[in-house]
Simulated scan of single mutants.
Amino acid sequence: MAPILTALVLTACGESKPAVCSDVEALNASVGNLKDVNVSENGLSSLSSDLTQVKSDLNQLRTDAKSQYQSQIDGVTSAVNQLSSSVSTAKANPTASSLAAVASAVSSVDNAFNSLQGAVSSTC
């Protein structure tokens, strides 16, 4: 009986993961793209495009997670909104200071995402 029970448990573990797992994987890739952008005047348009993808992935995660991981998702959302604001400022006035603010905001998004990823890791 024990081998059958073990087989059933192992089979259950192999079942598909919750949607939030694939959402976090997608968000991981889009946040990775943000980190890969060379923050300079010429990189701002690429950063804007990548930011659009991050927002899309984050919205999908918010939908699939419902209220689960809400505080972590809110943290990422807040960091993404700050990055969006910093990018807009840097596009309008690309100074060393505004570009540094963009780089700092990208780092904040990454940190917030890492917190979210840690919270979701027990589910995925």
Rank of each mutant, 00 (worst) to 15 (best):
M1C: 11
A2H: 10
T6W: 05
T6V: 14
T6G: 02
A7D: 04
V9C: 07
T11S: 13
A12G: 06
A12N: 09
S16C: 10
K17H: 12
C21K: 06
S22A: 07
S22C: 09
V24G: 02
V24Y: 10
V24F: 01
E25V: 09
A26S: 12
L27I: 11
N28D: 07
V31T: 08
V31L: 06
G32I: 13
K35L: 10
V37T: 05
V37Y: 01
N38M: 12
V39Y: 00
V39M: 00
S40Y: 04
S45Y: 03
S45Q: 14
S45F: 03
S45A: 12
L47A: 02
S49Q: 13
Q53V: 10
Q53D: 13
V54D: 00
K55E: 01
S56A: 15
D57I: 07
D57F: 03
N59I: 07
N59L: 08
Q60S: 15
Q60P: 15
L61F: 00
R62M: 14
T63G: 13
D64F: 14
A65H: 00
A65F: 08
S67N: 14
Q68K: 13
Q70E: 12
S71F: 14
Q72G: 08
Q72W: 04
I73N: 00
I73P: 00
D74K: 06
D74M: 14
D74C: 11
T77W: 03
T77N: 09
S78D: 08
S78V: 11
V80M: 00
S84E: 12
S84Q: 14
S85D: 10
S85E: 04
V87R: 00
T89G: 04
T89A: 12
A90E: 03
A92F: 01
N93I: 10
N93Q: 11
N93L: 10
T95E: 06
A96F: 13
A96V: 14
A96W: 10
S98F: 02
S98Q: 01
A100M: 11
A101T: 15
A103I: 11
A103D: 15
S104N: 14
A105N: 07
A105F: 02
V106F: 03
D110M: 04
N111I: 15
N111F: 15
N114R: 11
L116G: 03
Q117P: 00
Q117N: 11
Q117G: 05
G118S: 13
V120T: 02
V120D: 03
T123C: 04
C124G: 13
C124W: 07
